[in-house]
Each structure stands twice: as structure tokens, then as C-alpha cells.
Computed example of a mutant assay.
Amino acid sequence: MAADPPVSGKPVFRFAPSPNGRLHLGHAFSALANEALAQRVDGRLLLRIEDIDPVRCRPDYIDGIIEDLDWLGIRFEQPVRRQSAHLADYAAALSVLRVRGLVYPCFCSRQDVRAAVARRESEVGRPWPVDPDGAPLYPGCCRGLAEADASRRIGAGEPHVLRLDMARAAILAGGDIGYEVFDADGRRRFVRAQPARWGDVVLARKDVPTSYHLAVVVDDALQGVTHVVRGTDLEAATDIHATLQRLLGLPTPLYHFHELLIDAEGRKLAKSRSSESLATLRERGVTAAMIRQRLGFG
């Protein structure tokens, strides 16, 4: 899979929201951080719409994202990449992993996984390990399923996901999987990835033929992204991304993880908690200049 080189050798940054709600102050901070760091190194700034979820993502939210970012005064290069228009790119990457024997079908529902974990905990007499997001690691129920049996069940239309065999992936990827992190002054440090702590992550579902992890890795490569600036809530997930980049022969960008904005109760701002949107702030008379000043970009 060929990746586009940066145009004129310039650094390439991207802001990549999902259109499953209106943007809030946390999104504004991340977008402005990307803008500021790109300007500091005379870099390019791209906008990507991560709309692979056909249920939660809506066209009116895409319009809202464009409206909010335009109101903030952030200018992005055109055209804007929408993930839903590039499913073939993710299918090609998934095919590479399949050929290498790194992907297997899993027919377990969430309830099946919970039941399997409960059985394992009862057997070993201690809590089952969890991933960095706090979810129980997949116990591998379908990992050893015979190919003929799996093909029969897929042919019968049984719902399934495709998981990455992380143990095999670690072997084929080799040692020293990691990535470089840069700070606001440009200093770098190497971070060794720990993909095993995520277990056999899902790379595709029947209704969504890719996952955030796979799509973001492919997009960054195809768009020639050199610098990824995002919140600390995605820092641990970079273990998975660096591993997929190694397996797919893709470049690994430099990463910068900014702090998250929190609400009065100490929780990060989130659409799922109906954090106050930029649109609501705008309706109350708050200006873009006030937002920039409030977030430290005035």
C-alpha cells in the first residue's frame, strides 16, 4: 500500500472528528492545537471526517462540524476526506493482514464474551485482565476455530467480527515496535508500544467493514500525515496503530498528546455526556475570539 509523500516536504497535520454529535470545547482545543503546531513549522492542515459508523454518524453533524470550524477561523486544505467514501482502501489493508494469517472471524456476541470471561475468572480465582479502556480482554474463544467451520458459519450469514491475532502480530511485526512523541518545543522521545495489553482487537464488523484503528492508520498513510496531534485519551491506542503500521509497511507519524478539557465534575468533555456544544455557545453570544482566548490560543 503506497503512501503519498508530503507535498514539498512540508509537515502534514490533520484534525479528524466523528460526525456523531456537535463539536464541544474539547474538539475546539484539539483543532486549535493542530492549527498552532502546523503554523509553527509551516505545515499543512487537513480535515478528515471519520464517518464509518452508519448508525451514529449523520450528514447534519458533518455540516455542523464544517460550520463550527469555519466559525473558529480554522482553514483546512481541500478536499476534505470522508472515510465512508474510502471503504475500499480499508478492505485492501484488511486483505493484506488476512493473507498473512493475522485476522480471524469471531462469532461471539458481547454477552458471549462476558460469559466466557466470568467462567475464566471462576476457574483462575482472580479478576480477568482488562485493556487500557477498562474492557475485559477477549478470551480467545474463536481464535482456534477450524477454517472450514468458520467458512460455513460465515456462509450461513452468522454475524461476526474480524479480530487481529495479536500474539501472531507481535511475532511478525518483530521487536522494538514503537513511535516518537514530540512536545511543543519539537523535542522527541521514543515510546515502546505495548500492543499485547489490548488483546485481539476488532478490525472490522459485518455492518462496518473496518474499525477506527484500521481506518485511521490507512488514512494517515494515504494522506501523507507526518504529525498526529490528539488527546491523551488516545495515547494508549497508539500501541495498536504502531503495530498495524509495521504490519502493513506504512510510515509511523510523530505523535503529540495534549491534555483533555474536563467539566466541573472532573470528567472529560464528551458528546455522550451532552457537553455544551460550540453551537450553543455561539447562540449565547460567545465569539470565536473569546473561545480562542479561553483555550489559550488568543
Rank of each mutant, 00 (worst) to 15 (best):
P59Y: 13
P59K: 14
P59D: 06
D60Y: 10
Y61H: 14
Y61K: 04
I62N: 04
D63P: 03
D63A: 10
D63K: 06
G64L: 05
G64H: 07
I65V: 08
I65F: 03
I66F: 07
E67W: 05
E67I: 04
E67R: 15
D68A: 14
L69K: 07
L69S: 11
L69F: 10
L72W: 11
L72P: 06
L72K: 12
G73P: 10
I74L: 11
I74K: 10
R75I: 13
F76H: 11
E77D: 13
Q78S: 12
Q78V: 09
P79E: 07
P79Y: 08
V80G: 08
V80M: 13
R82S: 13
R82C: 14
Q83V: 08
Q83S: 10
Q83Y: 04
Q83I: 04
S84F: 04
S84T: 11
S84Y: 06
A85R: 12
L87G: 13
L87F: 15
L87D: 06
D89N: 14
Y90W: 08
Y90D: 02
A91Y: 02
A92G: 09
L94T: 05
L94W: 05
L94H: 02
S95V: 11
S95P: 05
V96M: 09
L97E: 05
L97W: 00
V99R: 15
G101W: 03
L102V: 04
L102R: 00
L102N: 01
V103N: 02
P105V: 00
P105S: 03
P105C: 03
C106I: 00
C106M: 02
C106S: 03
F107G: 01
C108T: 01
C108A: 09
C108W: 00
C108Q: 04
S109W: 01
S109R: 07
Q111L: 05
Q111C: 00
Q111H: 14
D112V: 00
R114G: 06
A115K: 03
A116V: 00
A116L: 04
A118G: 03
A118N: 05
A118K: 08
